[in-house]
Simulated scan of single mutants.
Amino acid sequence: MSNPIVALDPELRLNTYSHPFEIANNVPNSFIYFQKEIMMLRYLALIFFALICAANAQTNRTELKRADLTGTNMEIVVSVVDVQPGNNLIRHTHHGEEAVYVLEGATLALPDGKEVPFPTGAATINIRDVPHGGFKVAGDKTLKMLTVHIVDKGKPMMEPVK
């Protein structure tokens, strides 16, 4: 039995991916493959985004205020970050400066297993593109921090370190 769909254009080759609409409208296979590759790239980007979100889901960042830094291409972002006991703050960098003030302290477990206190009232500044974080909150207290970022506009707030 022969195939009921016949392509008259030699550029249009029938294959297992052809759809009757594509053949009836004389859509070249190269265009169809291009569309399918674009769709695959979209799926891969979505999966990558989901993985990044899953990595960041261990912390809760509530943005309080965002404003342009006058005369620059930067912005100021004020947030509160909560890291629940047993969760990690992944090792990451920022496209700018980060000031941190500890609202509610906790004990941090470092990658080498050493535990150190990060007490209420402690303050630190993390400079541009220098990796930091990479610890786990030990014990039963949630770590709560007020953060102020002065970062490049249009760039992600943080970049995970690979």
Results as ranks from 00 to 15, higher is better:
47 I>M: 14
139 G>S: 11
154 G>N: 13
22 E>G: 05
113 G>H: 14
103 L>W: 11
83 V>H: 03
160 P>A: 11
126 N>L: 05
56 N>T: 09
58 Q>T: 11
52 I>Q: 09
54 A>G: 08
109 A>E: 13
68 D>A: 10
115 E>G: 00
66 R>N: 01
67 A>S: 09
18 S>D: 02
45 A>C: 12
110 L>P: 10
115 E>T: 15
15 N>G: 09
100 V>L: 03
107 T>C: 03
57 A>C: 11
135 F>T: 04
38 I>V: 15
2 S>P: 14
92 H>I: 03
139 G>W: 07
1 M>S: 10
10 P>T: 01
136 K>R: 12
104 E>D: 08
6 V>H: 07
90 I>R: 10
19 H>I: 02
146 L>E: 12
141 K>W: 06
84 Q>V: 04
73 N>Y: 06
158 M>V: 10
149 H>G: 06
67 A>G: 04
33 Y>G: 03
57 A>L: 09
153 K>V: 05
52 I>Y: 13
116 V>E: 11
148 V>E: 11
160 P>K: 07
74 M>K: 15
130 V>E: 12
155 K>G: 01
32 I>G: 07
69 L>V: 13
54 A>R: 05
142 T>W: 02
151 V>M: 03
135 F>G: 04
73 N>S: 04
81 V>F: 05
159 E>D: 15
131 P>V: 03
29 N>C: 07
39 M>L: 14
114 K>G: 11
54 A>F: 06
119 P>Y: 08
108 L>T: 01
19 H>M: 09
78 V>R: 05
51 L>F: 10
54 A>I: 05
63 E>M: 15
45 A>I: 02
15 N>Q: 11
134 G>Y: 03
62 T>M: 12
109 A>F: 03
6 V>M: 06
38 I>D: 13
15 N>A: 03
30 S>P: 00
13 R>T: 07
91 R>M: 10
14 L>H: 01
160 P>W: 11
95 H>N: 15
9 D>Y: 05
82 D>G: 01
102 V>K: 11
22 E>I: 02
107 T>M: 01
77 V>I: 10
100 V>T: 08
91 R>A: 04
24 A>D: 01
27 V>S: 01
44 L>I: 12
109 A>H: 00
145 M>F: 08
126 N>G: 08
95 H>F: 15
117 P>F: 08
21 F>G: 00
82 D>H: 06
146 L>N: 14
60 N>F: 06
76 I>K: 03
156 P>A: 06
120 T>L: 00
159 E>Y: 12
72 T>E: 07
9 D>G: 05
57 A>V: 04
